[in-house]
């Protein structure tokens, strides 16, 4: 049983409850102990950084300071929200590479009787923990209801794979970890070209037209690939694509009905949990009809593959890079 210090972030209590519920469910099956950072505060998302750097970093660093007090055996902080994950790693990173800055943030923390030594914590995203700590073999062994027949578009968004700090676990542009996880659950993973494209972030509030354009690109690309649903690892992506899909449809006069789920919900489904135990139904674009395909053989797709694979007997294609998590890649080159 591995124990993790968990930084849930605000969304897990409101818009991303399905993420929270499903995570708690599957962590039982996987034998992961989760303990929240005691009295954590909001990480400030992208907003506080926009207004004033020092208080923004101090806000983040309070969480790091609190978490580092809870280190007991494991010093790994697990984050579920990608913005929280980014902010925590970014603060830790910048405090380490810019010692002057690190001192300044600690001076602020001092006012509250706290301090944080950069590097004291290992900050990981749940996906990283699942693929690299727990391992796909173990996950595969827990699958009771393979997700056969379900065509899934894996959508990671920006802040899990980027920026590409040395400690980041995946490729910044074409990460394979989520694909491989979903494949291990038995799902058919479509080659989703926009897997790390932007969902629009807070643009739904600031410049809705900009956001609608980005949401449209993503949903359309998934639809072009004949995906039954998209999964994400980020509350903001889920909210933008799910809650604003209707408004986007209205804006572009389109009629997409693409369900947007958290990847943990699909893991739970494969582990044999009932949909009701995984927060299904909390999504605005219902996943019901998509899930009814579970267990049925998905029809052959024809659209995207056409351009990419030349007919036999013509000029050979270069071999694609081998598909393996970046952690394995690093080991292979050592």
């Amino acid at each position: 049983m591995s124990d993790y210090i968990f930084y849930p972030g605000c969304a897990m209590e409101s818009s991303a409850r399905a993420y929270d519920i499903s995570l708690k469910a599957i962590s039982k099956t996987l034998g992961i102990g989760i303990k929240d950072v005691d009295d954590w505060n909001c990480c400030g998302a992208t907003e506080y950084l926009s207004i004033s750097a020092t208080p923004a970093y101090a806000l983040i660093a309070r969480n790091l300071a609190l978490a580092s007090r809870q280190v007991n055996g494991s010093n790994t902080v697990m984050a579920s929200c990608s913005a929280c994950y980014l902010n925590l790693t970014k603060a830790d990173h910048n405090m380490a590479v810019d010692p002057k800055f690190g001192i300044k943030i600690n001076q602020a923390l001092e006012a509250g009787g706290l301090s944080y030594q950069p590097g004291a914590l290992e900050i990981k995203h749940i996906l990283d923990i699942m693929v690299n700590d727990i391992g796909l073999e173990k996950i595969k062994s827990k699958v009771k209801r393979p997700l056969e027949g379900l065509r899934v578009a894996p959508y990671l968004g920006c802040m899990v794979p980027r920026p590409d700090y040395a400690s980041r676990f995946s490729d910044a542009e074409q990460p394979v970890e989520l694909d491989m996880l979903l494949e291990s659950l038995g799902a058919e993973v479509v080659d989703f070209p926009l897997r790390t494209a932007c969902c629009g972030g807070h643009m739904t509030q600031i410049s809705p037209d900009t956001a609608f354009d980005l949401i449209n690109r993503l949903v359309k690309a998934a639809d072009d690939q004949q995906a039954d649903l998209m999964v994400t690892a980020c509350p903001m992506c889920q909210m933008n694509l799910d809650a604003f899909q209707g408004e986007m449809n209205h804006h572009f006069k389109t009629n997409f009905k693409m369900p947007i789920l958290f990847f943990t919900q699909l893991v739970g489904l494969a582990f044999g949990y009932e949909a009701s135990e995984l927060g299904f139904g909390l999504e605005l674009v219902s996943a019901k009809s998509a899930l009814s395909k579970l267990g049925m053989k998905a029809p052959e797709s024809d659209s995207a593959a056409k351009v990419k694979k030349p007919p036999k007997g013509e000029l050979p294609m270069p071999a694609p890079l081998p598909k393996m998590p970046r952690s394995a890649e690093k080991e292979a080159t050592q």
Partner: peptide, 28 residues
């Protein structure tokens, strides 16, 4: 459907501490 709360969240326990930290940070 999503069941998002319409009332503000509960204040964290260390609100006073956080305020002090932010105040110092703003000065810095």
């Amino acid at each position: 459907k999503k069941g998002m709360p319409i009332t503000p969240p509960k204040r964290i326990k260390g609100m006073a501490q956080l305020k002090k930290i932010l105040k110092r940070a703003k000065e810095l």
